[in-house]
Write a protein that binds this DNA or RNA. Structure first.
Lengths: 226, 226
DNA sequence: TAATTTACATACACGCTGTATGTAAAACGA
DNA sequence: TCGTTTTACATACAGCGTGTATGTAAATTA
């Protein structure tokens, strides 16, 4: 059989990864066998084991790619904001939006913590979106805008809150939890961490978040109409 | 071989469940085979499949038991509080404390969402600890103490926040995230959801929980007596 | 007490992961 | 350019784990 060149090999590797990503996202890690991945990628299982060390290794590459996609969107959203505080809020909204996406949801929020061991998963998360959150909280804390007991614990709380919320947004029965509702309630909670409310920022951040109804940034004074 | 009576059969079922619970909690669902469960329970795999429909069915029974344990502790803590707001905070602390326990952590926080399908898992969670959270938020909202956009989204945010925080508390490198830090930061966030500080309701923690600006030390002292 | 159900044990079929081996062409050095 | 080495897979095989079918003796029931 004709052997492929280096570039073709790389293409094969990506094709395997994309096929696996789609299958894992659709039916979960355990329910997908490598034979199915191989056939859909038009290779044999031998090719998979040539490009990736194991099924876990393939999955880890899949999660890394998904993490990167989410992190890119978060960074893009945060960077387009004038100040750090709005950047944090925009980043949270971007994370929610990206995590809800079909290609990322099951992989990142459900399977990854169970398949990958804790240290591996934490390292990947820290290298991607988690790092942004910690950095944002750190600078805000250093600037005196944020007042928290522990940045690490706050980051964990926020990260977990958004993860779980993303799942509820995605698999909502009929009109269940919506993204706007979550962003609204999350903004209220974040507002509590501000050392002092800044009035004039409120108006600008409302349209910035685009949450449709009402957003709460400076304090918790705004009430949401249905 | 001598066949067992009904009572002995029930005992056998519980022994299988306890052995499986310990193994799943220690090494995770995927890494534990039913042969090991059988040998440690001093039965054969046939006995397991007689008492439980499948490996998933056994795991579901394990998760239900763990959920029950956690829910019991949460209810006990919440009921021993004078008012509903403190009950919420105490319940959150109790949940964190129970979720960190070795017997519950991996089962409830890592494996269950991946092994059980979403509807099954949500139904079990709603029947146990999740229900308490929603009920607490509902009554607080009805009494005007709580001001949120959506109770469901808030419950999801809080639940996810505590889940992730519990993992960070449990697997913390050296002096990592501690329970007190998490409870403190969580209390700050929850403080933002109070519609307005009620003077006569909470004696000591009037100004601290009402606005997110000021420190939360007073509010934490109420809950964190440990 | 005879019939039936129960509470397991035993044996087997099947799928999936991982590994060892084979192979032909690409990459590489002289 | 030519021989050697490495690469990029395909093929074949071993082992484990779930699930299921079957057997069996005692407990339960009529």
């Amino acid at each position: 059989m004709a052997r492929a060149t280096k570039e073709q090999s790389e293409i094969t590797g990506r094709r395997i990864l994309e096929v696996a990503s789609a299958l894992f996202a659709d039916r979960g890690y355990a329910a997908v066998g490598l034979t199915e991945v191989a056939t859909l990628a038009e290779v044999t299982r031998g090719a998979i084991y040539h490009h990736y060390a194991s099924k876990q290794g393939l999955f880890q590459a899949v999660t890394a790619a998904a993490q990167q996609r989410v992190a890119d969107e978060v960074e893009r959203a945060a960077d387009s904001c004038p100040d750090d505080w709005q950047g944090l809020l925009a980043g949270c909204r971007a994370f929610l939006s990206a995590a809800v996406a079909d290609r990322n949801r099951r992989i990142l929020l459900i399977d990854a913590p169970a398949v990958l061991d804790w240290t591996t998963w934490r390292a990947q998360d820290g290298a991607a979106s988690g790092r942004h959150l910690v950095e944002a909280l750190t600078t805000l804390s250093a600037d005196g805008v944020l007042r928290v007991r522990s940045i690490e614990s706050t980051a964990a709380l926020l990260s977990g809150a958004m993860n779980e919320a993303a799942l509820h947004i995605a698999t909502a029965p009929d009109p269940g939890v919506t993204l706007d509702e979550v962003v609204d309630d999350l903004s209220r909670m974040l507002g509590a961490l501000r050392s002092s409310p800044v009035e004039d920022e409120v108006s600008g951040s409302v349209q910035d978040l685009g949450s449709g109804a009402v957003s709460v940034v400076g304090g918790q004074e705004v009430v949401a109409d249905q």
